[in-house]
Write a protein that binds this DNA or RNA. Structure first.
Lengths: 249, 249
DNA sequence: CGCAATATTGAAATAAGTCAAACCGTGTGG
DNA sequence: CCACACGGTTTGACTTATTTCAATATTGCG
């Protein structure tokens, strides 16, 4: 489903996390985003494994996740996407090896290869911003591997909570140490390679220790310093701007 | 340590897996590879977490792995690199979130951003080849996540064996269903998020079932079809050229 | 109101981890 | 040429984190 108005702000906000954009550059990006904008409702696959894609898809509103499946039905979430995240690294007409599924009502937009090229040629900062975003996305994925391979249940879940806090702060979607977290325990289990039952028990444990509160999809990290320490969270791989938000010098 | 002669073939072989290169393009790439070539001996970190990098580093000889570490010493291997693999996605002056360590004596070369840009502008095929390589590297990483999150010990190890067979075939480094596999059981454990003891028992199991033989760092997959089926290996995410090798049309 | 999707709890089962020792090939040095 | 040290592999016995199964709350929603 298409929409006319522009959700381009989310992309600008994101690039602002990494590079300084002039108003001319912002305008040019806005301009390039004239292409199709899509709206998708909660709990829907909007890009499917096997689809051929080119250009760049950017999530501009809502939450989504990247899903890999085994033929026998086992499901692994390999990343959560929030506004400004790029759904897939830009490739000429390649088949997707994963699906993208929305957690909430979401919007995304598509940038064609030509428009993108023009932007990059005209504005090196755009190019750099996209490159950094791409690198950070890779770092997040590598840390997901570290998570699954080396951390236990408590650490996996705690680390994810910390990571999402920093990522959401960067795009202005966190309040202090809390944020809207539209992920069920079942999905959390699919993301962490655990059982829903065990995820539940682990979260209870966190609550009992006074580390987090989680109810009605609202997550609050009650003692970030202690949690981050317990799960060995170090935000440098996210290259967050100082203070966790975009406004610097 | 630097060398003068060119290991550029490995890069060409790899790009050949994805795009058709004219002899002019091959020559231009060779030419661009005039930059520093490095030689590193077995079991050495040659790029370190925290290092600032730019341009592209290509492994041209030997095996290496990408390592992530936790402050308490836990180690997770997040990928094996073989000749033609790119060590890190091209980024302007970014800090590495992982280390690269050689398993065998290895070579790698560095391509500066300018040289790379020139190549890409002059030869779209080079650009496309690099983009596809990048995409496949991402797919491999995502499948590693799937592996760690959803597969059991047997499936994880078996899947890795299958994946490396296809990847090595594509660059002409496999004989039939066997290949040199310079990875100790300890490293295999670090890659699969298991214990060396458990890796050992699992491999014994594979041997007992007549699926693989592994001795003196030589791995032979005795029944690829059955193994691939048991561990649910499907090579499409590697985008291998038909037949698993570069020579088509 | 009442279904359907989540969350929670308990008890029993199991894959994988831990600890610790023995084994093996191989290269080195006396 | 033997001894011995080293890195890697193998084996056994025991522990534990996580899964499984199954039942019972709870919540959101049409």
């Amino acid at each position: 489903m298409k929409r006319g108005d522009s959700d381009c702000e989310a992309l600008l906000t994101r690039l602002d996390c990494f590079v300084r954009l002039s108003s001319e550059q912002r305008a040019a990006i806005m301009n390039a985003c004239f292409g199709p904008h899509y709206i998708v409702r909660a709990k829907a696959d909007f890009l499917r494994q096997g689809d051929r894609m080119s250009g760049l898809h950017v999530l501009t509103k809502g939450w989504a996740y990247r899903l890999l499946m085994l033929p026998d039905g086992r499901r692994q979430i390999a990343g959560f996407l929030v506004p400004g995240d790029i759904c897939m690294t830009e490739v000429p007409d390649m088949r997707l090896d994963f699906s993208l599924s929305s957690l909430t009502d979401s919007h995304y937009l598509h940038l064609g290869n030509q428009a993108l090229d023009r932007l990059r040629v005209a504005y090196p900062a755009v190019r750099e911003g996209l490159a950094i975003h791409n690198h950070v996305a890779g770092a997040i994925l590598r840390n997901w591997v570290l998570n699954l391979g080396q951390r236990n249940a408590f650490e996996r879940i705690g680390h994810l909570f910390c990571e999402m806090l920093i990522r959401l702060r960067c795009i202005g979607m966190a309040q202090n140490d809390g944020y809207h977290f539209p992920v069920t325990q079942i999905e959390l289990a699919e993301a962490t390679g655990l059982t829903p039952v065990h995820v539940n028990r682990t979260i209870q444990d966190m609550r009992a220790r006074g580390l987090v509160s989680l109810q009605n999809r609202e997550l609050k990290i009650l003692d970030f310093a202690r949690l981050a320490n317990l799960v060995m969270f170090d935000a440098t791989y996210l290259h967050p701007v100082a203070g966790g938000c975009a406004q610097d010098g």
